[in-house]
Simulated scan of single mutants.
Amino acid sequence: MSSFNLVDALFQLLSLACIVLIIVLIVSFFRSKKYRKKQLDRIEKKIDDINQRINKDAD
């Protein structure tokens, strides 16, 4: 009665894979968001430096 069923094992592996996939997607989303914020901060700093140079040269 309690024999090993291949379909049950495949279903459990698929369920586990879905949970792992959700966790990986969440982690990668937040890492990507963090990277983009750092990138935007660097771009903003460069733009501010350029604006200061332009204003300094104009005076």
Results as ranks from 00 to 15, higher is better:
M1W: 05
S3R: 11
F4A: 03
N5S: 14
N5E: 14
N5P: 00
L6G: 04
L6N: 02
L6K: 02
D8L: 11
A9S: 01
L10H: 00
L10V: 11
Q12L: 06
Q12R: 08
Q12I: 02
L13E: 09
L16I: 00
V20S: 02
L21R: 08
L21W: 01
L21F: 09
I22T: 12
I23C: 12
I23L: 11
I23N: 02
V24N: 10
I26Y: 11
I26P: 03
V27L: 11
V27T: 07
S28Y: 04
F29I: 07
F29P: 00
F30D: 00
F30G: 00
R31Y: 07
R31K: 10
S32E: 06
S32N: 08
K33A: 05
K34E: 13
K34T: 13
R36W: 15
R36V: 07
K37D: 14
K37N: 15
Q39W: 09
L40V: 05
L40I: 07
D41Q: 13
D41V: 05
I43M: 14
E44L: 07
E44M: 04
E44I: 02
E44K: 09
K45F: 05
K45D: 10
K46H: 03
K46N: 06
D48G: 01
I50D: 10
N51S: 11
I54V: 15
N55L: 05
N55D: 12
K56N: 14
D57T: 08
A58T: 09
A58C: 02
D59S: 14
